[in-house]
Computed example of a mutant assay.
Amino acid sequence: MIKRLVAVLFSVFALILAVGCGQNSNSNTTNSKVKVVTSFNAMTEFVQAVGGDKVEVATIIPDGTEPHDFELKAEDIKSLSSAKVFVYNGLGMEPWAEKAIESAKNDKLVSVVASKGVETIKNTDEEEIKEHGAEDPHTWLSLKNAVIEVNNVKDALVKADPSNKDYYEKNAKDYVAKLEALQKDYAQKFATVAHKDFVTGHAAFAYLCRDFGLEQQSVEDVFAEGEPNAAQLAELVEFAKSHGIKTIFAEEMASPEVSKTLAAEVGAKVETIYTMESKEDDKSYLQRMGDNLSKIYESLK
Rank of each mutant, 00 (worst) to 15 (best):
I101D: 02
I101M: 07
S103C: 08
S103K: 13
S103F: 03
A104K: 14
A104S: 14
A104N: 11
A104H: 14
K105V: 15
K105C: 10
K105T: 08
N106A: 01
N106F: 10
D107N: 11
K108G: 08
L109Q: 12
L109R: 00
L109K: 13
S111P: 08
S111W: 05
A114Q: 13
S115L: 06
K116V: 09
K116P: 07
G117P: 05
G117L: 09
G117D: 01
G117Q: 13
V118G: 01
V118I: 07
E119P: 07
E119I: 14
T120D: 08
T120L: 09
T120Y: 10
T120R: 11
K122C: 01
K122W: 06
N123D: 09
N123R: 03
N123P: 02
T124H: 05
T124G: 08
D125T: 02
E126R: 12
E126V: 14
E126W: 00
E127R: 12
E127T: 15
I129E: 04
I129T: 07
I129L: 05
K130R: 11
K130A: 15
K130D: 07
E131F: 00
E131R: 10
H132E: 12
H132M: 03
H132R: 14
G133H: 11
G133K: 06
G133L: 07
A134F: 06
A134P: 11
E135V: 09
E135T: 10
T139K: 12
T139D: 09
W140F: 15
W140A: 08
W140C: 14
L141F: 11
L141M: 11
S142L: 12
S142H: 11
L143P: 15
L143N: 13
L143S: 10
L143Q: 12
L143Y: 14
K144H: 06
K144D: 14
N145S: 13
A146I: 04
A146S: 09
A146L: 04
V147E: 14
E149D: 10
E149M: 15
N151S: 07
N151T: 10
N151M: 04
N152I: 10
V153I: 15
V153Y: 08
D155N: 15
A156W: 01
A156F: 05
A156D: 06
V158K: 02
V158D: 03
A160P: 09
A160T: 14
A160L: 15
D161I: 08
D161Q: 15
D161H: 04
S163G: 10
S163P: 05
N164I: 02
K165Q: 07
D166F: 00
D166Y: 02
E169S: 02
K170M: 00
N171D: 04
K173G: 00
K173A: 06
K173V: 00
D174I: 02
D174P: 04
A177P: 03
A177G: 00
A177E: 02
A177L: 03
L179D: 01
L179H: 00
